[in-house]
Lab assay of single mutants.
Amino acid sequence: MVVWDEDGFQGRRHEFTAECPSVLELGFETVRSLKVLSGAWVGFEHAGFQGQQYILERGEYPSWDAWGGNTAYPAERLTSFRP
Results as ranks from 00 to 15, higher is better:
1 M>A: 01
1 M>E: 01
2 V>Y: 09
2 V>H: 13
2 V>S: 04
3 V>M: 03
4 W>D: 01
4 W>R: 01
5 D>E: 14
5 D>T: 14
5 D>R: 03
5 D>Y: 06
5 D>H: 04
6 E>H: 08
6 E>L: 06
6 E>M: 07
6 E>R: 10
6 E>N: 04
6 E>V: 02
7 D>T: 15
8 G>A: 09
8 G>I: 14
8 G>N: 13
8 G>R: 09
9 F>P: 00
9 F>N: 02
9 F>L: 00
9 F>V: 02
10 Q>A: 06
10 Q>V: 05
10 Q>S: 09
10 Q>H: 14
11 G>R: 01
11 G>W: 01
11 G>C: 02
13 R>D: 04
13 R>L: 05
14 H>L: 14
14 H>A: 09
14 H>M: 14
14 H>I: 10
14 H>D: 02
14 H>K: 12
15 E>K: 07
15 E>D: 07
16 F>I: 15
16 F>L: 12
16 F>M: 11
18 A>Q: 14
18 A>V: 12
19 E>N: 02
19 E>Y: 03
19 E>C: 08
19 E>T: 07
19 E>K: 06
20 C>K: 00
20 C>I: 09
20 C>L: 11
20 C>F: 01
21 P>L: 07
21 P>C: 12
21 P>H: 12
21 P>T: 14
21 P>M: 08
22 S>W: 00
22 S>Q: 04
23 V>M: 11
24 L>K: 14
24 L>H: 15
24 L>T: 09
25 E>M: 11
25 E>K: 09
25 E>F: 13
26 L>C: 15
27 G>R: 02
27 G>P: 05
28 F>G: 02
30 T>A: 09
31 V>W: 03
31 V>S: 01
32 R>C: 07
32 R>W: 01
33 S>G: 00
33 S>C: 02
33 S>T: 03
33 S>E: 00
33 S>K: 00
33 S>F: 01
33 S>P: 01
34 L>V: 10
34 L>S: 03
34 L>I: 06
35 K>V: 08
36 V>W: 01
36 V>Y: 03
36 V>E: 03
36 V>I: 09
37 L>H: 09
38 S>G: 11
38 S>Y: 04
38 S>V: 08
38 S>K: 14
38 S>L: 03
39 G>F: 02
40 A>S: 12
41 W>Q: 01
42 V>W: 05
42 V>K: 03
42 V>S: 04
43 G>H: 02
44 F>P: 01
46 H>A: 11
46 H>I: 08
46 H>E: 15
46 H>F: 12
47 A>V: 11
48 G>V: 05
48 G>Y: 11
48 G>D: 11
49 F>S: 03
50 Q>W: 05
50 Q>L: 04
51 G>T: 07
52 Q>I: 05
52 Q>N: 11
52 Q>L: 07
52 Q>Y: 06
53 Q>A: 10
53 Q>R: 12
53 Q>G: 14
53 Q>T: 14
54 Y>P: 00
55 I>S: 13
57 E>S: 11
57 E>G: 11
57 E>F: 10
57 E>C: 06
57 E>P: 13
58 R>V: 14
58 R>W: 07
59 G>L: 00
60 E>F: 05
60 E>G: 04
60 E>W: 06
61 Y>A: 01
61 Y>G: 00
61 Y>R: 04
61 Y>E: 01
61 Y>P: 00
62 P>L: 05
62 P>W: 07
62 P>H: 10
62 P>Y: 07
62 P>Q: 06
63 S>I: 03
63 S>E: 06
64 W>L: 15
64 W>H: 07
64 W>I: 14
65 D>E: 15
66 A>G: 06
66 A>Q: 11
67 W>C: 04
67 W>R: 06
67 W>P: 05
68 G>S: 11
68 G>E: 12
68 G>F: 08
69 G>C: 08
69 G>K: 14
70 N>T: 08
70 N>F: 08
70 N>C: 14
70 N>W: 08
70 N>H: 10
71 T>E: 13
71 T>D: 13
72 A>R: 11
72 A>E: 12
73 Y>Q: 14
73 Y>W: 11
73 Y>F: 15
73 Y>T: 13
75 A>M: 13
75 A>P: 14
75 A>K: 12
76 E>M: 10
76 E>G: 13
76 E>T: 09
76 E>W: 13
77 R>M: 14
77 R>L: 14
78 L>C: 04
79 T>I: 08
